[in-house]
Amino acid sequence: MGRTARLGVFFSLLGIAIGLCVFTAMAWIGSAPPTVSFASSQPKGAPVQLHLQTVGAIGTGAHPDWVSYLTQEPDGHWVGTTEWDIPASTVVDVTLDEYDSGSPLRNEYLGLVGAATVGGAPGEGGVIGGLENVNGKAVRVVDGYSGNGIAHTFSVPDLGINVPLPGVDGSSSKFCSEPAPCPTSALHNVITFSFKTPASGVYRWQCFIPCGLSYLYGNGGPMATAGYMAGFIKVVS
């Protein structure tokens, strides 16, 4: 093979390698979950109404069998995302429809509202009033061994927020088994709570229940992928 031919082969392989890298990078960027903005559509100072769902299997996309959160956009459309833009220093009223089954916790301490707090005292700050409402009943601690256990948590450690989400009966005929979003006719718990956003910044949030079944210690797959059981709250000023 002549020198020119060798150079041709070399640059061809180099081009293919660069193309693969670019393709992989673009695919990764394109796979990021969309961000639902509550910052632009919200009247200044008015509470943000954040409506979420947790489902046992999202039913669509690359991982239809993965457990997931969903977010309702301001126009009422449900999207499979865990990333939101929320204005700073604003009260966020969260309504969370929980459609997944539950179990006892690996660490029952996480059944306490406000448990997963970095630096501060658990249960102080974060969730306004230190209580969540489960189907209209104020609750401070959810016992994972009672009822249907706990399905997930909504936890923002840097903001002192940890809200355990009681599960529903997975053997019920009304258990949601269709692709998300689940209809309100399906068996679910309605959990409400409020918190106030701090100054601008990006705050990680996640479910602290190892619900990534079939993954090591339940913390892989959806637990380790933004858009399913973890995400970011982007607080914008």
Partner: peptide, 24 residues
């Protein structure tokens, strides 16, 4: 209220190795 839900104090705890249906 949450301490009473915790397991008795022990030096180690053996949770289920897989999934949320573990226990503590």
């Amino acid at each position: 209220p949450v301490t009473k839900l915790l397991p008795p104090f022990a030096w180690t705890y053996t949770p289920s190795a897989n999934g949320a249906g573990g226990g503590f």
